[in-house]
Design a protein around this nucleic acid. Sequence first.
DNA 1: CCTACTTTTTCCACTCTCAGGACAAAGAGG
DNA 2: CCTCTTTGTCCTGAGAGTGGAAAAAGTAGG
Lengths: 396, 396
Amino acid sequence: MRRMTARPANAHQARLLRLLRDGGPNSRAQLGDQVDLSRSKLAVEVDRLLETELVVADGLAASRGGRRSHNIRLNPHLRFLGVDIGATSVDVAVTNAELEILGHINQPMDVREGPVAVFEQVLAMAAKLRATGLAEGFDGAGIGVPGPVRFPEGVPVAPPIMPGWDGFPVREALSQELGCPVMVDNDVNLMALGEQHAGVARTVADFLCVKIGTGIGCGIVVGGEVYRGTTGSAGDIGHIQAVPDGRPCACGNRGCLEAHFSGAALARDATEAAEQQLSPELAARLEANGTLSAVDVAAAAAAGDATALDLIREGGNRTGQVIAGLVSFFNPGLVVIGGGVTGLGHTLLAAIRTQVYRGSLPLATGNLPIVLGELGPTAGVIGAARLISDHLFSPA
Amino acid sequence: MRRMTARPANAHQARLLRLLRDGGPNSRAQLGDQVDLSRSKLAVEVDRLLETELVVADGLAASRGGRRSHNIRLNPHLRFLGVDIGATSVDVAVTNAELEILGHINQPMDVREGPVAVFEQVLAMAAKLRATGLAEGFDGAGIGVPGPVRFPEGVPVAPPIMPGWDGFPVREALSQELGCPVMVDNDVNLMALGEQHAGVARTVADFLCVKIGTGIGCGIVVGGEVYRGTTGSAGDIGHIQAVPDGRPCACGNRGCLEAHFSGAALARDATEAAEQQLSPELAARLEANGTLSAVDVAAAAAAGDATALDLIREGGNRTGQVIAGLVSFFNPGLVVIGGGVTGLGHTLLAAIRTQVYRGSLPLATGNLPIVLGELGPTAGVIGAARLISDHLFSPA
DNA sequence: CCTACTTTTTCCACTCTCAGGACAAAGAGG
DNA sequence: CCTCTTTGTCCTGAGAGTGGAAAAAGTAGG
């Protein structure tokens, strides 16, 4: 199928496309209520969008008491690809223009195998999704990588956990392979975008999105826009010192948050506890699987294992202390906790909340919700689709 | 004299006014080079500004090889009032429309005396400046207070060190008294605005401005705009925990940065050291004055007093550790250190730099200048004038 | 002093955008 | 069948804005 190559010609058209993306099909009249344009002007712009086939007419809208109106919707053949590369697995999803997930695959993988091997796998996964008939091609793709990105160019810079990716032209390469526009960002920023678009952060302008997975990162949203910092490393909170003279960290310092609590640190602590026979529950799981991960700790905690609960609580306390500092500094309207360890659930959340509410001033915490992300593993891919759609649905 | 009540009628005019504010007198042609408007359109807008007397013609511009052009400048009779209320003193200054300081007074004062007493003093100071003939009235005033502010309304909210100010309608009251528009903000934000307008941060979009005075606060600038947070308390870093189980703080917690290093903490530490005869230099100064302040510590350090140097270094280390965390999180392009304790100078700066460069990742610190503010005590008042001028020089 | 060339300003005709009124089309409700 | 409401279309006029031409006011060199 011929792909859509058209782009909105002006800010009005971009505005309309975003309204249709976020609000689904709308009649011309409903659109008019939202955009502050004259009916004539609106009709002209909608007609132009129809001409470029970015939007299509689609049946009759519900009556509002008078003449019924035809619905306008984004072209149902538009397809976005959302890719979320984690440290140990990849998520690939296909969405329509309204960013609804039509198909989603998750596969284990190791980023350290380098960009070439990873891309091969990602492209295979995309092909697989395409083969199911969900898409005949992609109109745009968003991709998240677990490390800092020079955003305008779409190139990872000095990513600690992704050796071999430094300077690799991710955007360029993927755009070449897929034959469509591509945007690249940090995976944490995409999670924030995802939760903003379809999750718990829909109505908040300024919020933090803390992702605790293999490492720890934080998406920062200021005035509804992701803030990336001067060199693209904003939100890199994994190496903030959480424990003075604490454990040595891969970065060369001691006491980094990430060294004390993260998917990797938790797995190591759990294994240690199991080997020292401190926890029968964990020991049994180690016996059974050969290794332990955050999932095992979560299961053990759910079974009431005291050691597992302690590990989670202590980690939550550490994380909460760091977040308390960030809350004082940033004064967000919401804090979202997400990532692989959300399986630890309420125990973790309670520990974090306790520390934040205790460690920050009342004015900052007074009306501050601290909640788990609502989208789980789909936050990243939805955010990726949102990223590219924001790019495509903006004036050329 | 009749005050200017006109406001720019559209975004073009606002743009021109800001160019004239920041770049001084310019010819029409020079303005044309900067604004991307046709000559005709530009002429129309300039004429309208001349009509409203917001700008005036002012002599001939330097020749660029052909016909000489008349300069356009902001009305030289425009006057802004900048007020910077600190915990223990007030600064009041008068500026012209280009935000150059024409007169500046500083007086000791205690905010805890409450808004009524403080305003009386501020108005007296403003009257004194006016009496010198610098101004016949004010076209706008900016005012900074040492605590969080609900910015849109210009009302302090729950300010810890300003009992009696909570909810006091500062903006409304001052506007009434002065008969001109007023904007209110946190003093730290104004310092950041000042350094951005006329100081070290002129070319940086994202930076932090750490003010160490009686307390510690931090101005946050994102994309050239001050970020104030959800409730106006962003940048309140004085109560971030710097020392686990450290000293008790007025806020009820232990180990807050402010409890370990700030003008107040430093004075107390110095007094203690003097009383315990650890430092002859400080003891002599205590003997002479009855009390010690950050200035005494600075003088003792300059004289080579080891105890004073240690106090500064330790404080700098604490502060540096906190800033290191903020740098990891925020990834600024510049960190400015300002406030009363800048007299501690290079010793303090060196300690802070050491901690930040050690404690943050290379990607964030690689090209990160950490410098002292360049404007000293005028940063606040310049920022205040900038705040109100930004407000007035925007489309109505 | 005069001439050739620049730069700057002013004037003007023309295009384009856009708002809002008038009107037609289509349905709801009685 | 009639009236009212909502929706879509057409049209005209106001205003914004562009860019060319010419006038104004200078510089530089002979």
